[in-house]
Design a protein around this nucleic acid. Structure first.
Lengths: 341, 341
DNA sequence: GTATTTTTGAGTTACGTACATCATATTTTG
DNA sequence: CAAAATATGATGTACGTAACTCAAAAATAC
């Protein structure tokens, strides 16, 4: 039988009220008495029954998730993961509301962050580009007493205590290693398409990719990054153009979204099978492309895991608790046709 | 504000006692009244507060996990994952106790399963070879009212409602695809080392491996499976012997445990770098081997995820609830040096 | 040594649900 | 239509904790 507050009180030789004061950091207890109580807690191995506690204090967690309003498949997956997590979390008195901002209008984002700051929610999970204005707005939210954790794309300059997402430099290295191994060993030309180099995640991936390419496969020629702003139509056009200019391209690394455009241009030009393609994020499009052999590998992060991890992390922060470290590490996943779930 | 039983009572025009009778399937309520209550539940979107309910009914979950007593690194990881999960679960009134059986003595396992049957725990997670005697013992446990879910290695013949683990045929296919792509395209000889073909998981992996090898890389020569019973020393000896007999081996697929033996024989024979090795499970050994370039890819399953999923599944079964489908799907993970956490 | 402040004790109510008892209302049976 | 059976209501206690009040005790100040 797990010990309760009554057992602690008895063991420490104090009243229930005192135990309560100690447990909840209420004032008016002598240092000596606090120690007695804490000794008893340690001795009996007491752990607070969080469910009962939350029931009693009518605690509810309200979290806000800030996302770009992009209509990409990946962000749809992120939203779906949030909805799913929210559904499963309602019995735990936890609500997550999603707020979106237009990617092309930083002012709107700052405005939104100002509103959130005023609401003082328990926690905020945010996926946004890292600009000085964003950094300051996030810092203000934190100063107002709200815990903030960046997700997917990091905001290191905000001094966040946690980041929930993958190591994107490592992801780029992984892409390069697979690309290099899947290509013939003779010199090849490789095209890199990204969304925007202003996004921390995309920039980091490119860094990692170049790093490993340089060291492990120096014979290849990696072209400068095409920026396509995560839009399929842009990807289509710009890749089409690149293929015309460089008929010798035999590898494509797609860092961002808009993979539908990549798939269609590859099919149109009849290069779907012979060009090695490594892309990011598991979506319907990339999944199909893997199965049909158009894509050769996909580097992914489990968005469901990311969302749940963000919730756990924020909850732990608000309750001032520890999290299971290993459970919160987001792995960089590799998919090929054969291991699609 | 979430509706409570009081709201249901008011809306349905019945007393609290009646709502309680309906909610907990107690007898003495007319069909018509039951319907009224259920309509109110549906209308208000009532969901039972599981935490409060468990608190009130003093519910605790006691689960048993049955594992082989093997001292392999992988099983150590499994045990560690269970300990970690158990620690995090104690506030949820959930206990997991581990029972081990000697892999070489099926009678002991049957005996153990008999004991477990008599204890009637809430749920059992089991990793064991599938023999007729095991199947029957498991069926008896289930008949006694305990929910059973096989983990890691499936027991399809027990008619279990869930299996928590990866698709091992798919894992074998994944291994073959990576092996094929990492090898030169010219004909190669490939060695396959497994624990024992009696284990469902190992047998399935070999099946998947052969399948993809045959279809995608028919030029290669895949040798018959070496059985090494998951012991490093056996692996070492048998692989050493195989390397002497077949100096042309340029790929090794390690299906089971005992990778330390594989690593040492490869180093001793100076073949660590030139032979392509695909192995299973992420352990200290395989992680180091990846980083040093001795192993080229590792196929893994997240044991922490498996354990937590098994607990959620068993809990949902005992409470007669649904689980989040996507959260319970265990992915077949691929690791190379670059995406090691 | 008295007045004041600080610390502690004892007790109550609440959270949402489970479960039990006993009384009363409604329906069914003969 | 009365008796028996069944259905429902009213009420209380419990679970483990939080949060509050008020009184009493202990420590400190003057």
């Amino acid at each position: 039988m797990r010990p309760t507050v009554y057992d602690i009180a008895k063991d420490a030789g104090v009243s229930l009220a005192t135990v309560d004061r100690v447990l909840n950091n209420r004032p008016g207890v002598r240092e000596k008495t606090i120690q007695q109580v804490q000794d008893a807690i340690a001795k009996l191995g007491y752990v607070r029954d969080v469910a009962a506690a939350n029931l009693a204090r009518q605690r509810s967690y309200d979290f806000i998730c800030v996302l770009p309003d992009s209509k990409s498949e990946f962000l749809a997956e992120v939203r779906a993961a949030i909805d799913e997590a929210a559904a499963g979390l309602s019995p735990d008195r936890t609500s997550i509301s999603v707020r979106e901002f237009p990617l092309d209008n930083t002012n709107k984002l700052i405005e939104l962050l100002g509103e959130i700051q005023a609401e003082v929610p328990d926690g905020v999970a945010i996926m946004a580009p890292e600009t000085p204005a964003v950094r300051d707005a996030v810092k203000r939210i934190m100063a107002a007493g709200t815990h903030v954790t960046p997700i997917i794309s990091d905001l290191p300059s905000t001094d966040r205590s946690h980041f929930v997402g993958i190591n994107n430099v490592g992801a780029g290295r992984t892409a390069a290693q697979l690309m290099g191994r899947f290509l013939d060993s003779k010199a090849a030309t490789i095209l890199v398409v990204a969304g925007s180099m202003v996004s921390t995640d995309h920039a980091e991936r490119r860094t990692g990719f170049d790093e490993t390419m340089c060291i492990a496969f120096p014979q290849h020629n990696v072209l400068p990054t095409l920026e396509a702003f995560d839009k399929a139509e842009n990807v289509r056009e710009r890749v089409g153009e690149a293929l015309r200019h460089h008929p010798d391209i035999s590898g494509i690394y797609s860092i961002g979204a808009g993979n539908q455009g990549l798939v269609s241009i590859l099919h149109e030009t009849g290069r779907a099978k012979d060009i090695i393609v490594v892309a990011h994020e598991l979506t319907d499009c990339s999944r199909n492309a893997l199965m049909s052999g158009t894509f050769d590998a996909v580097i992914a992060q489990n968005v469901g895991h990311i969302v749940r991890s963000a919730v756990r992390t924020l909850k732990a922060q608000t309750d001032n608790l520890q999290t299971i470290e290993s459970q919160e590490r987001i792995r960089t996943e590799i998919f090929i046709a054969e291991n699609l779930s």
